[in-house]
Design a binder for these strands. Structure first.
Lengths: 105, 105
DNA sequence: ATTTGACTTGTCAAAGTTTGACAAATTTAT
DNA sequence: ATAAATTTGTCAAACTTTGACAAGTCAAAT
């Protein structure tokens, strides 16, 4: 794993977009999205829909697998943040996830 | 934190219920729920709704705060399990959650 | 072997949530 | 001052989850 990204996923998209000198409208078109909604995504007011991840990887020539990892870690981070989860509880959650894995094998 | 619970939240409810010798119908009534739905909850086919947590704590005389911790760690565990998250990605998620905390202060 | 009680499963409408689209407002750059 | 870029508000459509009830299995008791 090579991820060093500290931003939210929305901030990351904004970074990629501005680096490439694209406007919201231009990128939105490539992602089959309304520019207003892309704005909300970049500002963390809406979530990026997973179904557009592959398209996003294409546009910015990113490794789809790594981008997916960024995506899911961001979604999890959002949950952790919203639930106001201590590190202690996170550890318990991790153990419980492991337990679920043993169940469904 | 004293949690040592390794079960899913549904399994935990079943444990509490059977220990107390209650039927699905009896407990469901106390939680203002249909016994069929409680059955699904205990079997992991539906989620327990957060709005009934306090009631659940009362019925079994549990510490509401601790029960809430069990609840959120279970929900997070479910996510982690469903997303097929490696420990590595979890660590990244934790850092990203921390980043979100710095943002909203 | 039938009845009874406990539990499980399927279905579906209602309630709740998220998304897409468009209009309008604000900000930024020229 | 104008135009382009971005942000915000709103609302219906799409999607997801929940509650309720009917019908099912299963085991124990009679």
């Amino acid at each position: 794993m090579t991820s060093q990204m500290k931003e939210t996923f929305g901030e990351y998209i904004r970074l990629l977009r501005t680096e490439k000198g694209l406007t919201l409208t231009q990128l939105a078109a490539q992602l089959d999205l309304d520019s207003a909604n892309l704005s909300k995504i970049e500002n963390g007011k809406r979530d990026f829909d997973e179904k557009r991840l592959d398209r996003l990887a294409m546009v910015f020539e990113l490794n789809p697998k790594e981008l997916h990892n960024e995506y899911i870690s961001d979604r999890l981070a959002k949950q952790i943040y919203e639930m106001n989860c201590s590190t202690e509880i996170l550890k318990v959650a991790e153990e419980k996830a492991e337990y679920r894995r043993t169940l469904k094998k």
